[in-house]
């Protein structure tokens, strides 16, 4: 999701958040894949302004299973001037397809185990207290 009028750093951040299931950037990226919507048409598909589509991507994703899901979606919809039912449907659609895909993977793994196929080799757990500094 890029927008030339935006600082490049914002696009870079959105790009990184597309891989994080806790963020709306992830939901929008999966929605775009599912519906074949490109970056240029995303705001139009959402019924809002391009700046506000990016704003939405930077928000955390409401949990579809939580009791306050509707409230959280309403808050997001107000904050991005979007229709809350459109937004709720997108989040639900992406979550459902993700759940289905996870279930299918589990079934395949289970079937492989039943056949006695060797599973992927397990690696030892990564160290947890690595130094934080990069260099």
């Amino acid at each position: 999701m890029t927008n030339l009028s935006f600082p490049l750093a914002v696009s870079e951040l959105v790009k990184r958040l597309r891989e994080n299931p806790d963020y709306m950037a992830y939901v929008l990226a999966r929605y775009q894949e599912q519906e074949g919507v490109n970056d240029e048409n995303l705001a139009e598909a959402l019924g809002t302004l391009p700046h506000l589509a990016i704003r939405l991507a930077l928000c955390r994703k409401p949990d579809t299973g939580s009791t306050d899901f509707a409230t959280r979606v309403r808050e997001l919809a107000d904050y991005t001037l979007m229709d809350e039912s459109v937004l709720a449907n997108i989040i639900r659609q992406v979550s459902s397809l993700k759940a289905l895909s996870t279930a299918s993977e589990r079934q395949l793994l289970s079937a492989a185990r039943d056949r006695g196929d060797p599973g992927p080799e397990r690696e030892s757990s990564p160290e947890t207290n690595k130094p934080e500094g990069k260099s």
């Binding site: 600082p7 490049l8 750093a9 914002v10 951040l13 963020y23 704003r55 939405l56 930077l58 928000c59 955390r60 994703k61 409401p62 959280r72 808050e75 997001l76 904050y79």
Partner: peptide
């Protein structure tokens, strides 16, 4: 845990920091 907070923070600081 506010859902809007990451966006608010990004909008406030990213342009300033980048510039």
């Amino acid at each position: 845990g506010d859902h809007l907070a990451p966006s608010k923070i990004a909008e406030l600081f990213l342009p300033l920091l980048a510039r």
